[in-house]
Simulated assay, not measured.
Amino acid sequence: MFSPYTITERWPASNPDIIQLYTVDTPNGLKVAAMLEETHIAYEKHLLSFRDDDQHSAEFLSLNPNNKIPAIIDPHGQDGMPLGLWESNAILLYLAEKSGRFLPHDRHARYETIQWLMWQASGPGVMFPQFGFFFTKEGAEWEDKRPLQKYRKETKRLLTVLDQRLSDHTYIMGNDYSIADIANWPWVRALIRPYEAQQELALDYYPHVRQWLNLCLERPASVAVLHP
């Protein structure tokens, strides 16, 4: 069934009849795990090790040539054939369509949701980890603080955009939780843990974001992936 993907030889499936998730518990990895929990789609989780460079192994590259997590194999794709898929937001879209949940059926609302999905991919998904690198990792040791200042400014700008959106929306798309929320909350959470940048970014200045984040974190599916 999985013959095109030698990844299953290194990380064999206990139940090859359900979705196989290859991941690490980073924000992008948490997105897909949370979506699977929300939709109650059966899946099997395989944890990779960045320390062991698993994402660059030939087996992982057989599924994702871009050597990034997460990636999935669905043995029952929409055409009845196994489907390998990577890029976290593409996987969110696929799972939303497969389950019929967390993506509006109304065309206007659907594309607005996808708009926020793309915003996450090009905004927080790029800028937040850059900020995190220069604030907490090797970049924090650089004498030149201009990169930190640049990414801190852009991170705060993006938080302002999100806070304005949430000022009159319970969730990004209104009263209904969607893949726009699932894509975004793991990256906003990362500013608190592991980056511990609450004071650096003055997160209390974004009350709507904080309220929304708490709602997202309280969901049983979020609890399940954060505290397995």
Results as ranks from 00 to 15, higher is better:
residue 126 V to N: 07
residue 118 M to N: 15
residue 118 M to H: 08
residue 112 E to T: 13
residue 145 K to M: 14
residue 126 V to L: 13
residue 121 A to E: 13
residue 144 D to L: 11
residue 118 M to C: 12
residue 149 Q to M: 12
residue 118 M to W: 06
residue 128 F to C: 03
residue 121 A to K: 05
residue 107 R to Y: 07
residue 113 T to Q: 07
residue 143 E to A: 15
residue 119 W to P: 06
residue 124 P to E: 10
residue 116 W to N: 01
residue 109 A to W: 00
residue 106 D to H: 00
residue 108 H to F: 00
residue 140 A to E: 05
residue 116 W to S: 01
residue 121 A to N: 10
residue 105 H to K: 12
residue 119 W to M: 09
residue 119 W to K: 04
residue 104 P to F: 01
residue 137 K to T: 00
residue 124 P to H: 00
residue 136 T to V: 10
residue 120 Q to L: 08
residue 114 I to S: 02
residue 118 M to P: 08
residue 113 T to N: 08
residue 128 F to P: 01
residue 106 D to M: 03
residue 110 R to K: 09
residue 131 F to M: 06
residue 115 Q to A: 04
residue 125 G to E: 02
residue 106 D to Q: 01
residue 119 W to Y: 14
residue 131 F to V: 06
residue 127 M to Q: 12
residue 141 E to I: 02
residue 131 F to W: 05
residue 109 A to P: 05
residue 148 L to I: 05
residue 122 S to A: 12
residue 143 E to Y: 09
residue 141 E to H: 13
residue 140 A to V: 09
residue 130 Q to A: 11
residue 147 P to D: 10
residue 138 E to Q: 11
residue 115 Q to S: 06
residue 114 I to N: 07
residue 126 V to F: 07
residue 139 G to I: 02
residue 123 G to K: 09
residue 133 F to Y: 14
residue 130 Q to I: 07
residue 126 V to T: 13
residue 144 D to W: 09
residue 107 R to C: 02
residue 105 H to S: 12
residue 124 P to N: 08
residue 105 H to T: 11
residue 138 E to H: 01
residue 112 E to F: 09
residue 124 P to F: 04
residue 113 T to F: 06
residue 116 W to F: 04
residue 139 G to W: 01
residue 143 E to G: 14
residue 129 P to A: 08
residue 106 D to T: 00
residue 149 Q to I: 09
residue 145 K to I: 13
residue 142 W to N: 15
residue 148 L to Q: 03
residue 143 E to S: 14
residue 104 P to G: 01
residue 149 Q to H: 11
residue 114 I to M: 08
residue 139 G to M: 01
residue 108 H to S: 12
residue 117 L to Y: 08
residue 136 T to Y: 01
residue 127 M to T: 13
residue 119 W to L: 06
residue 134 F to Q: 07
residue 113 T to H: 05
residue 145 K to R: 15
residue 107 R to T: 14
residue 116 W to H: 03
